[in-house]
Design a binder for these strands. Structure first.
Lengths: 130, 130
DNA sequence: CAGTATCCTCCTTGATACTG
DNA sequence: CAGTATCAAGGAGGATACTG
């Protein structure tokens, strides 16, 4: 027996063992940072230029926006297009893969909108006791 | 006009402006860390004791597991039950809210499994050029 | 405009030791 | 068994200055 994943039964969150290289950890490493999901979210509304993204994603620094976009480009989720005009214009757009990512992301967002109230209430109740 | 969110049209990732307190950032702050999603994933397979979780989530330290579980408990996503037996036994279980979170999480996981190959390929292609 | 290059500071995480 | 307490390290992220 090489792995211990032989148990069938109810495995709701997909049954691979939580190894360091499991798929869950790998997306988490990619999109679990402070800005990636936000940038994808803005691009889901339409292509945007660097400065537009910077304005839209409140609080992001130039450095982190660049870094985030480079990561997304490397992952094949975002396409970067340079228009060699006088003041150079750079447009960012989701690729097809990037668009598919929006669906699960949106599901998470809807969960947040639906349940965040309850979560906050739970926090308050919990902190009150303490 | 208080906000600038008046534009209708295609707003795929839900159209709230990306303020520092938008729902997306708030869940990200809660589940975007290294361990929370993993712990929820294990608990989605069934209730578990502290030591079971520690074994199942490879690489987690006692400290981080405790911290993660405390956070989930405070958020009302996990219920902690102490059985005052001889060596004390503590069981963790997802609450109803915790179970609802599994659905979007699982969607994300499926995306990962489906697309991670492509992402890796894109990375290799991208790095080759450089 | 759209970055790059540095420097610097927290903050998260990990390692270790101890306890009810 | 299931934690808590403390210390230390590393890296993510921010501020600032400079550039094609």
């Amino acid at each position: 027996m090489v792995t211990t994943s032989s148990a069938p039964g109810p495995v709701p969150l997909l049954g691979d063992p939580y190894r360091a290289d499991c798929p869950t950890r790998r997306i988490l490493d990619r999109i679990g940072d402070r800005w990636t999901v936000l940038v994808v979210g803005v691009l889901a509304e339409g292509d945007a230029r660097f400065s537009q993204l910077a304005r839209r994603v409140e609080g992001v620094s130039q450095k982190m926006l660049t870094q985030t976009l480079r990561g997304l480009e490397r992952d094949g989720l975002v396409r970067r297009t340079v228009h060699p005009e006088v003041p150079v214009r750079v447009e960012y757009a989701l690729t097809e893969a990037g668009r598919t990512l929006c669906e699960p992301l949106r599901a998470l967002q809807e969960w947040a909108i639906t349940h965040l109230e309850d979560v906050s209430a739970s926090q308050r109740a919990h902190d009150e006791v303490a």
